[in-house]
Design a protein around this nucleic acid. Sequence first.
DNA 1: TAACAACGCTTTTTT
DNA 2: AGCGTTGTTA
Length: 679
Amino acid sequence: MQISKLNYLNNLNKNQKEAIIDLDGPCLIVAGAGSGKTRVLTTRVAHIINQNKAWPNQILCVTFTNKAAKEMQVRISKFLDKKVSSLPWLGTFHSVSAKLLRKHASAVGLNSHFTIIDQDDQMRLIKNIAKAENIDIKKLSPNIILSIINQWKNKGWLPKDVVSKGNITLEKAVLKVYKFYQERLKILNSCDFGDLILHCVTMFEKNPDILELYLNNFKYVLVDEYQDSNHIQSKWLNLLTKKNNNICCVGDDDQSIYSWRGAEIGNFLNFDKTYKNSKIIKLEQNYRSTQNILDAASGLISKNRGRLGKKLWTDGTKGELVKLTCYKNGRDEATGIGDIIEQNLKKKYSLNNVAILVRAIFQTREFEERFLKIGMSYRVIGGTKFYERAEVKDSVAFLRIVNQKNDDLAFERIINVPKRSLGESTIKQIYDWGRANKQSLENSSYVLLQQNKIKPKAKISLMGILKLFDKWRLDLKEKKHYELMEIILDESGYSKMLKDKKDLESEGRLENLKELIRGMRDFDNLQSFLEHAALATSIDQNWDGEKVNLMTMHGSKGLEFDAVFLPGWEEGLFPHQKSLEEKGDLALEEERRLAYVGLTRAKKESFISFVMNRMYRGDWIDSLASRFIEEIPEKNIQKEDITEQKNEDFIFNQDIDYEEGTKSPGWARLQRNKIKKLK
DNA sequence: TAACAACGCTTTTTT
DNA sequence: AGCGTTGTTA
């Protein structure tokens, strides 16, 4: 194997080098924020290949997000020569699992064209089951059922494995749904996200020969963000490393922020107990932030107990103090921050290097409104996801049913879209028959049509659409998948439906569909496109232009910016009330880690703020400053005093300064009235 | 079946 | 406050 850059070990510190060079045996790399974690991981892969320890296809490398997988792929390709430019087994837990399952689908009772369903589909399936089983969804909401089922799956429990935790009536009811749910998924030849991992584990456990195949193939296993792994994922890793024992996990216990979706920090903390004779290497030198920012973050996180414990340091400059500002309300906060960016930061940094990190995505709205007003470009990362848009989901549903005729959830979604008078009663009829006879909706439809049980009008319509499904399946054999999409949108009447609406929204939807078709060209075939659509949440973020970044703190993990704003540090919002109610002290620590993640995103400057009054669910709430503010060492903070009066002028001047055509007295009066109303 | 009104839930985070 | 779901009516 040729490594194009032989000097890849240069410019690394001692610990980093150690983390890269020692390839064999279990190894845990505790990598603090900004300590060069990704670099170490990718260099380690390069080193494995360079030392002829393994071929690229013998390295299994898993991440949690598509973003991280892609980033690693890019960085590793730089080390490799062009012929082997990528690692075939680098991907998220979910995508790697899907790949494994497609190869051995029959071992878990699936067919290799199985559909991967998302939360939306999960929810509909659960609602259907609840309805059929006469479960009162007012007493037991599908939301709760879904979250419990997901939790069980994260633990690796199939219905037969469920162990009671106390609330027996609740658990019994959910368990009943869970059984039907799993049964139904199998009939539909479908998997949910949890199943992807779970099925892999059961497959390996029940088929040692299959496991053996991979134990022999995977010489090295590397894992990113290990602190986010859940129980079933750790078992998955455990199985796959049984033979060579070459597992290298990278993570940071202080950045564990996903316990709500099953992440178990215990996997990370007890790594050395799970894997005997393991090495633990700490990366504590931070290359990202100034001393002040780092000290502020370290001071805050030191309030947490149950840490592995590490002390981040930097030999960089002290830099600016962390600025703390109190605003009157959310609108003032957005205005004030917009002003700082416009007046101070824009000169120093690219807007792409300025971020506003919020606790909850709804907080971005006030900023958007303000930025639109003053004409400042911004992008919201992680907001509305491309593949979650209704029109995109509808179109993908057509493809899904073409690809896999048992995909009831797709069938249900588009059978009457556009309207073809297949109403509730007809669908219920088909559904009931299918459930009773353990058949998919499409098969059931054929039987019912044959038995002449469908109402005349619906019958014609149903026959028509079924015929179309078959035609499209034939089309797929001769045409490209993206050509098929156009044919479907045309022949199903979907395009026409949107065109006929003639409103702005429908135009946007048509645009999205064009974008979808364009995006489909990046994939070789229908199957691989559908896999992407199921597992990727967004089409690649457009980083063009100079724009301020708006996102949640969760979404910011792994990123860095010159200047970071952390608005909304108020009790109830951050730490978030709901999380405290659910899990108490544990949740408080997790919220604190989130604060730590947020703060450590900043390279040069950070701005924390809170407001006195915030509009929340339609009411004004008096808020208190977040307890986290007091936990940051005072010496690292600079308090900016802003009086109410001054602040009001601030808003006023802002609008005159930045918006053209708004200098009229009438407009100014309108603004003043608005401010009065707020009081 | 479709259009409209009433209701209630949301807005913590995501593969 | 705003959205989606459910219920009511034509």
